[in-house]
Nucleic acid binder design. Structure first.
Length: 322
DNA sequence: CGTTTTTGACCTGCGC
DNA sequence: GCGCAGGTCAAAAACG
């Protein structure tokens, strides 16, 4: 497909995230959040978010060997350890630059489509009953008789897209699609405005699983890959050791010790926080997470971090237990 | 032959 | 309402 057309000088990384290399001033970030880069020195921000960075860890860098993500942000119910010393699959040449903490509010408005009530709560563990390949169209299909062209288009309308919680990783990698323990099927690719790199869309190959993933390369730093997950897996990861092009190594075999392997010494850390009112929302999110978190903001989940690794968000608690 | 990728078309939301 | 850009579908091709 041909590349992009006009180049808008104002970057909008995606419909949902902004890569904030320092520019906050987006008039409007569409739906959900920023992908925001910060310097390690901004520990206040990090600590706001619950990242505990040992003082000795910085020789100008955040030492990811030692970071503990206190995702409870004061409530301290759990953390995700980042362990770069652990072995990682090494079929690749990429380096994971920085772990991401995502934060995402769920747009639970299913509106016109009653097909998936379970989606209104991200803590749902029951997979959508009939997730076919065109998972988004079930009720609509039933309502509209199939008839060649008409059916084709009717399939796609009616229901509103349901946004689930999302989080993203920013990784320094030469491969775009990083292995994360799940199998993904690519279902689309689009040119991104103002970027020479296309964005790829993947869906979990598990037919019951509606998790999606977007992969794109930063136009600002082509060595960086932005991977955005959306939704929660309703199943365990496939066996690791999966053939893959890269390996993100989010290991969940032992959910209780989910860890995220990364390479040491990133120069910056990126994390995501919801748009709206700048940093204040970070704490809001914490509160959300604590308070029942029907929106799946599980960073403050009170259970002992079973699988609360970065994948913990996409694997419902009920599924984490082997 | 089943699965995955490619890719053009189509849909949707949003700004103007 | 129109145009743009992001997101998804689905047929065909490629792959194992």
């Amino acid at each position: 497909m041909a590349g992009n057309e006009k180049v808008d000088p104002e970057f909008r990384a995606s419909s949902s995230w902004e890569l904030g290399g320092g520019r906050h001033g987006s008039d409007k970030v569409s739906d959900h959040g920023y992908l925001f880069g910060i310097d390690y020195r901004e520990s206040s921000i990090l600590s706001e978010f619950g990242w505990n960075i040992p003082a000795e860890s910085t020789g100008g860098f955040v030492d990811l060997d030692r970071i503990e993500f206190d995702l409870a942000g004061g409530g301290a119910d759990g953390f995700v350890s980042v362990d770069s010393s652990a072995p990682r699959s090494d079929d690749t040449s990429y380096n994971i630059l920085e772990p991401m903490v995502r934060v995402e509010k769920v747009e639970a408005s299913v509106s016109a489509s009653p097909s998936n009530p379970s989606l209104s709560s991200s803590s749902s563990e029951d997979p959508p009953e009939k997730p076919t390949d065109s998972g988004v169209s079930s009720a609509a299909d039933a309502a509209t008789p199939p008839s060649d062209t008409a059916s084709k288009s009717s399939k796609k309308k009616v229901q509103k897209r349901i946004r689930q919680q999302r989080f993203a990783f920013v990784t320094k990698s030469e491969v775009d699609h990083l292995e994360d323990g799940y199998r993904w099927r690519k279902y689309g690719q689009k040119a991104v405005k103002n970027s020479p790199f296309p964005r790829s869309y993947y869906r979990c190959t598990n037919s019951k699983c509606m998790v999606k993933k977007r992969v794109e390369r930063s136009y600002e730093d082509p060595s960086v890959v932005i991977t955005t997950y959306e939704g929660q897996h309703c199943h365990h990861s496939v066996g690791l050791g999966y053939p893959s092009r890269g390996s993100l190594s989010l290991h969940l075999q032992d959910p209780a010790s989910a860890s995220y392997f990364t390479t040491p010494r990133p120069s910056t850390s990126h994390f995501i926080y919801p748009q709206q009112n700048s940093l204040h929302n970070i704490t809001q999110l914490h509160n959300q997470g604590k308070g029942g978190a029907s929106h799946g903001v599980q960073i403050a989940n009170s259970e002992p971090l079973a699988g609360q690794g970065l994948l913990g968000d996409i694997v419902p608690p009920g599924m984490r237990k082997g």
